[in-house]
Design a protein around this nucleic acid. Sequence first.
DNA 1: TGAAAATGACTGACCAGTCAGTTATTAGTT
DNA 2: AACTAATAACTGACTGGTCAGTCATTTTCA
Lengths: 221, 221
Amino acid sequence: MNKTVAERGPKFRRRAEARPDEVLDAALELFIDKGFAATRVEDIARRAGLSKGTVYLYFPSKEALLEGLVRRAILPIADSALTALHDYEGDPRIVLNMVLTMLAGRISDPKVMAMPKLIFREAMGFPGLAEMYRREVLDRVIPAVEGLIRRGIEQGYLRPVDPSLTIRSIIGPLMLHVAMAELFGIMPEGGLHMDKLVENHLSILFDGLSAPPSAKQWSSS
Amino acid sequence: MNKTVAERGPKFRRRAEARPDEVLDAALELFIDKGFAATRVEDIARRAGLSKGTVYLYFPSKEALLEGLVRRAILPIADSALTALHDYEGDPRIVLNMVLTMLAGRISDPKVMAMPKLIFREAMGFPGLAEMYRREVLDRVIPAVEGLIRRGIEQGYLRPVDPSLTIRSIIGPLMLHVAMAELFGIMPEGGLHMDKLVENHLSILFDGLSAPPSAKQWSSS
DNA sequence: TGAAAATGACTGACCAGTCAGTTATTAGTT
DNA sequence: AACTAATAACTGACTGGTCAGTCATTTTCA
């Protein structure tokens, strides 16, 4: 089947070595459209061109498959976000713009989008998964964003707000947008249009929803 | 589904009548802390003081239990939100403030909070549930909010934004706040403090994150 | 007494994880 | 090159456990 594996190195056994990744690929596809519980290990094996037993040579349990998957897909994204957040000095709105745009782009890839979906669905049933995600992603990203907002306030770019709570106002809309589309099929004509969403959201986030007092009626408040 | 038994009064035999609601109460408690899949119908029956078979006298399937539950808990909330949204004319910010505050209050009740949690977890596995929620709640609430925003723009209260996308910016943060707390235990010291969140969020939502161009701060509400 | 209400043992289906056995690959020997 | 261990990689039937849903029987009460 795949000779490619064999061209690796000196000590090449039969066709091991690349297997774990192949298994994860298969697991990802199936978890995406059936969810974790409804996916049988046998199916994962078949899709990877293996038998069930072989999967258990590489992963100790079905849950380990899930953890390995999330770790592999999420960490790179968290890393690029962190880099962007740390490297920048100056107007935080520019960084936020960049990060949200980057996030929106990444999320358009179904393989990436599958991750938050999986985590949300399964976190409650598998505390180990939730803890790993928290440790590896949230505990690093959240303080970075909080710091960004705090600095923005100190330097006079932003109004004084609670940095911690404000994170919800920044990220929440993206999440809800994806969730509505994913769970209920509610989305703009013809696709997610993450770019449109981010544009609309950022304009509200930075400038607010209120019309400037100058314009029109501002009668009874 | 469970129509006949509960609604007619005249023919009451042994101690039927209140049963469907009792079963739902029991199911709710168990679903809250074990999730749908991990809860056995037998456990629900026991907690309601019944045997498994009796549950099936009132509900045709385990899934019907879930649907009944969600319907019972969600509709009243959607109704009050809708009433508020329809009854009000004038500055939409006042209505939004009211609705979000109401929502925040309701969500503090664990029995209510359990609902979005359940729906998000199970919607994908039970399309019927997702569809029901969409039909009964989202398809009524979303157009109402869109209308509110549109009117707000027309009457000069709000800046011109995309009403449809703006809904994400209004509700998303609440959702993320609850999700972070629920899934990862990330929340403000000492509790959800939905009131604080709503206050911070509304100030951003209406006035934006940006400091006014003229040097000094100028706190809003 | 008779029918509605309730029961719980039972069935059939499902599936994670195991393990005794099979097949492919390599190293060693001639 | 051919033949032979030795062993790494893989297989899939099987086990043990779980549970949704059924239904023949029993209980309750009008």
